[in-house]
C-alpha cells in the first residue's frame, strides 16, 4: 500500500503540491488525473523517491521514503517498475539490453535465463522477436511497449505509469490501455497511472483521483467521478476550458 500524507512541493517559490493526501491500496489501479502542469508527474516522482518532499511523507508498505538511506531506497525501488512519458529507453542499448539491464544488475540469473525472461516480457507486450532493434528504430507506441516490458522485467509489485498514452495515435493508445488492463487482470500489480486521458482512465482505473491546484479534490470509482457535482471535475471530464 502507498500512503501519501500532507505532501508539499514547491519549485522556485511556486507551490506545485499543496498538502496532497492519497492512499493507493494493494492490488488496485489508481489513476491520477488533472490538467497538464498540475503536478501529477511530480507526485509520481515522489512515490518512487526521485524527488524529496518539502513537507509531508510518502510511505510504501509502512516504509517512509524520507527516512531511509540510499541503499534501502534502492532495495525498495526493486519492487517498482516505472513507465516514463517519453519511454526513457536507453538509446545506446538494444531493446533486449534495455529490458535485461535490471536483471543483469540485480539478479544472479544466467545469460540464457535472462534471455528467456526478456523474450517473455517482450512477448507480454506484443514485441516478441524485436530484441535486436535499437530504440531509434521503434515508433512511439512500440517504445512505450518496450518501456513497459522493461518496467515489468523485475516482476514488480508496483508499476507507475507517467502519461502512458500521451503522444500516441488512438489505436496505439488503445493498445497500451489494453495492455495495462490485461496486465492488471493477470498479475494483480498495484498500479498508479498519471494521465489526462479520460478514455484511458475509464479503461484501467479501479479508482480515480483528481489533482487540482496542488490538492486532491476527488477520489473515487470511475462511476462516482461521473456523478460528482463538482463543476471543476465535470469540466475536466467534458474537456471544457474555464
Amino acid at each position: 500500500m502507498i500512503q501519501i500524507q500532507g505532501l508539499n512541493k514547491s519549485f522556485n517559490g511556486k507551490k506545485v503540491l499543496d498538502g496532497v493526501d492519497l492512499e493507493v491500496r494493494t492490488g488496485e489501479t489508481m489513476v491520477i488525473i488533472g490538467t497538464s502542469g498540475c503536478g501529477k508527474s511530480v507526485l509520481l516522482r515522489h512515490i518512487i523517491g526521485l524527488m524529496r518532499p518539502d513537507r509531508g511523507s510518502v510511505s510504501v508498505d509502512g516504509t517512509e521514503l524520507n527516512r531511509i538511506g540510499k541503499r534501502d531506497l534502492y532495495q525498495l525501488r526493486k519492487r517498482f517498475g516505472m513507465l516514463f512519458q517519453g519511454s526513457a529507453l536507453f538509446d545506446s542499448l538494444s531493446v533486449e539490453d534495455n529490458v535485461a539491464l535490471g536483471l543483469r544488475q540485480h539478479t544472479a540469473l544466467t545469460r540464457e535465463e535472462i534471455g528467456e525472461k526478456v523474450e517473455s516480457k517482450l512477448g507480454m507486450v506484443g514485441m516478441a522477436g524485436s530484441g535486436k532493434l535499437m530504440p531509434a528504430e521503434l515508433s512511439g507506441g512500440m517504445k512505450k511497449r518496450v518501456g513497459l516490458a522493461r518496467a515489468l522485467s523485475m516482476d514488480p509489485e508496483y508499476v507507475l505509469y507517467d502519461e502512458p498514452t500521451t503522444g500516441l495515435d488512438p489505436i496505439s493508445a488503445d493498445r497500451i490501455n489494453d495492455l495495462m488492463a490485461g496486465l492488471q487482470e493477470k498479475l494483480r500489480i498495484t498500479s498508479v497511472v498519471v494521465t489526462h486521458d479520460m478514455v484511458s482512465a475509464g479503461r484501467v482505473a479501479d479508482r480515480i483521483a483528481m489533482l487540482h491546484q496542488g490538492r486532491i479534490i476527488f477520489c473515487g470509482t470511475p462511476q462516482e467521478i461521473k456523478k460528482s457535482p463538482d463543476e471543476r471535475i465535470q469540466r475536466f471530464i467534458r474537456g471544457e476550458a474555464d
Partner: peptide, 24 residues
C-alpha cells in the same frame, strides 16, 4: 551523451531501476 540521457529521463529511469547512475 549524459546530458541527453538526463533531459530524456534516462538517468531517472536508471534510478527507478535501482541502478546507481554514478556507478553505471
Amino acid at each position: 551523451e549524459l546530458g541527453t540521457m538526463k533531459v530524456t529521463e534516462q538517468i531517472d529511469a536508471l534510478e527507478t531501476m535501482a541502478v546507481d547512475p554514478v556507478e553505471h
